[in-house]
Amino acid sequence: MNHSSSTRNLIQRIGFGALSVLAFVTVAPIIGTALYILWHGGSAISWEFLSGFPRDGMRAGGILPAIVGTFYLTVGTAIFSVPLGIAAAIYLSEYAPDNRWTRLIRIAIINLAGIPSVVYGLFGLGLFVIFLKFGTSILAASLTLSIMTLPVIISTSEEALRSVPQAFRTVSISVGATRWQTIRRIVLKEALPGILTGVILGLERAAGETAPILFTGAAFFLPQLPNSHSTRPWPCLITFLSSRRKYPTCRFKFNMAPRWCCWFLCWE
C-alpha cells in the first residue's frame, strides 16, 4: 500500500509537472509577444505620431486619420449593434417562451458568432455595397461589423440580465409596474455593468477586425479628415497594418502598439 501510494504520488507529481509545463508553454509566447510589441512599438508612440497626418507617402508623420477612421467605424458599429443587441438580449431573457423558435434563435446566434469574418465581408459586399448601393463606405463597413458583433453583445447582455434576481421583477410587478417599466427601471439598471462589458467586448472585436472591412469600407490614405460621413471610404488603423505595401521604416509596422495599449487599459 505504501509502495503503491508513493508511485501514485510520483505519477501525480509528474502529471502536475507536465500540466504546469504545458500551461507555461501556452503563456510564455503571449508574454513574449506582448514584450516584443512594446519593445519595438513603444518607442514609436509619441504625441506627434498619434495626432499627426501621414507625410511622405506614409513614411513619416502620424496616424490621426486612421485613428479617426477607426473611431467612426466603432461608433457607427455601436449605433447599430448596441440597441439591437440589447433588445434581443431582453427578448431572450425576459420575454422568450421556451419553445422551438427560441431555440432556433439561440442556434442562429451561435452560428452568427461562428461565421468566419471574411464571410461577413462577402455578405457586406453583396448586401450593403452592391445590392443596397452604399458603395465601399463607413456605413457599409459599420453595418457589416454590427451584425458581426451582435452575438457577443446579445449573449453577454443576456447573461447579465439573467443574473438579476427574479425577486426584483416580482416586487416591481406586484407594485403595479408594467413589464416594460420593470425591465427598464429595474432589470436594465441592475444589469448595466454586465451589459457594458458585453458592449465593450463586442466593439473591441469590431475595431480589431480586418477581413470584413477589406471589401466594404477601407481606404488606404487620406491626408485630411474626411468630411462626408457616410459615403467615402475611410482609412482604418487596422488596414494600415495589413495594407499591401512596404514601409521603408520599421516604425510604421508597429503602429498597432498605441491601440494595443488602449486595449490593455480596457482590461484594467
Binding site: A87, I90, Y91, L92, Y95, L104, I105, A108
Partner: peptide
C-alpha cells in the same frame, strides 16, 4: 420591437 430584435438573429 423587442421581439423583432430577438428574431433578427434568425
Amino acid at each position: 420591437l423587442i421581439q423583432a430584435s430577438g428574431y433578427s438573429a434568425i
